[in-house]
Design a protein around this nucleic acid. Sequence first.
DNA 1: CGGGGATAGTCCCCATAGGTAACCAAAAAC
DNA 2: GTTTTTGGTTACCTATGGGGACTATCCCCG
Lengths: 122, 122
Amino acid sequence: MKKELSNALIYPPVLCPLALTLDVIGGKWKPLIVHLVSQGVNRFSLLEKQLPGISRKMLANQLRELERDELLTREIFAEIPPRVEYSLTETGLSLLAAVMPLYEWGVQHLAHKQPRHTAIQL
Amino acid sequence: MKKELSNALIYPPVLCPLALTLDVIGGKWKPLIVHLVSQGVNRFSLLEKQLPGISRKMLANQLRELERDELLTREIFAEIPPRVEYSLTETGLSLLAAVMPLYEWGVQHLAHKQPRHTAIQL
DNA sequence: CGGGGATAGTCCCCATAGGTAACCAAAAAC
DNA sequence: GTTTTTGGTTACCTATGGGGACTATCCCCG
């Protein structure tokens, strides 16, 4: 019975639900962006401040992808200086709910540990 | 009150629990690896088969990081051909529990959509 | 009146992360 | 005796992402 497992894919490659989800929010920044927007950090420069280490290029890119995937909307105000506000869609909110357990896991397991990769030197 | 938000970081940069979690399982492959190992796909070559698109270098790298972060253990059997078995630690299991909502989200929201990034042409 | 700041990006150049392919060793199967 | 299997490592090369400069327009300050 282990044999069956080794010869066949558990899921047809593109139909693993987890892979499909990671296709949409996979990556280092998207869960953080979705969470921050839900907290009212809804403008480009605010997000930039809350995400030490992200580059503008990357932030713009991730926001475009989240918008394309209909997790958030982008509202442009014709003002000077320009203002753009992001907000979560229904889908985005449901995804946020699925992301929160990761947040809780962080609270439970990592509060006392030192970070490695994203360490910011001040 | 919005003013306060815009001037100060919601969290001291390295102490956002979500960022700390993503530090450990962020990335395209780690959640999939953890899930697969929990399903009994516990050897290098089996994982390779179940993860179309991953390179051996990347798989080895991600497994090392997961091992270093004590999410899984690596057991080497002195056989020919060599055999190595991975299994989840307690911590790994708790993280799997936090990842499963993403799997469920995929079931709910993406079953009918076409994948983009990880599309495998057959 | 002139200079500087603020917003939300875009563009180019370069470093590095990650993909590709080859190689390994020893036994077993054909 | 040739091919297959396993779990990688290594060298090479490309694609992704970081850094910094640049944009336009208006307001505020002196």
